[in-house]
């Protein structure tokens, strides 16, 4: 297993948000974390990344426990994170944004370079000197993903990569994620509905009100529309 999460509980101040969340991601797998607005998808990712201070549970990455490591250390071990609000450095150029994300290459894998990322997202190649703040939402999303790839992760947590994007861009994004998968990356994607997940994911979890409600393949989920209707936006 690439990533194993067990009995994750998180709090924002006094509010208990996650209840015994558990899931696992295999090597090279693309897994969806589905759930409605406010279900706890982002909180799950933030907790794994060590960004929620009140938390309990177990997070294992490549067999090592990383529950109590600081965020930067988690990233350096190869767990990349693309936050839902993209968090582009708007006053830095595209190239400089990449530079911030750059980390040591992973043994046995080709290092990500800006040029490789431009192949993945050709739009970005045309605006290397543009400031992050002067880019469209879709371009910023690509930049954010590219920036995380520069850290040479072996697993990436992608928080709603399709949110607010035009259909054409969503397609392009799906293509890029599949390309990342072909590179051997494991990926966890959070999404509100099935449409995008169907295109790229092998398996899915559904989270609702901070609890995992379903776990299975996309096909199983397709075969049970009542589950989808109960827990997902249509």
């Amino acid at each position: 297993m690439k990533l194993e999460v067990a009995e994750l509980n998180s709090f924002y101040g006094p509010a208990h948000i996650l209840f015994d969340v558990g899931f696992a991601v295999g090597d090279g797998e693309v897994v969806a974390m589905l759930g409605r607005n406010g279900a706890g998808k982002s909180t799950t990712f933030r907790t794994i990344m060590g960004l929620v201070s009140r938390r309990a549970g177990l997070v294992k990455f490549e067999g090592d426990e990383i529950t109590r490591l600081p965020s930067y250390e988690i990233v350096r071990r190869g767990l990349g994170y693309v936050p839902e609000d993209r968090r582009i450095f708007s006053e830095l150029t595209v190239e400089e944004n990449f530079e911030v994300g750059r980390q040591k290459p992973r043994p046995g894998a080709a290092a990500w370079t800006p040029d490789r990322i431009y192949k993945l997202f050709p739009n970005l190649g045309e605006m290397r000197r543009r400031l992050g703040g002067d880019m469209s939402g879709g371009e910023q999303q690509m930049l954010s993903i590219g920036r995380t790839l520069m850290g040479n992760p072996s697993l990436v947590l992608l928080d709603e990569p399709s949110e607010g994007l035009a259909p054409k861009i969503v397609e392009q994004m799906a293509g890029a994620i599949l390309a990342m998968k072909r590179e051997g990356l494991s990926i966890v994607i959070s999404e509100q509905n099935l449409h995008f997940a169907k295109l790229i994911c092998d398996r899915a979890y559904i989270i609702e009100k901070g609890r995992i409600r379903f776990s299975g393949t996309i096909d199983e989920l397709e075969a049970h529309p009542e589950i989808r209707d109960a827990y997902l936006a249509v």
């Binding site: 960004l51 965020s71 930067y72 990233v75 350096r76 936050p83 968090r87 911030v100 994300g101 850290g151």
Partner: peptide
């Protein structure tokens, strides 16, 4: 905080 999420100490 984002810088930390990109592996910078």
């Amino acid at each position: 905080d984002m810088v930390a999420c990109l592996g910078v100490n």
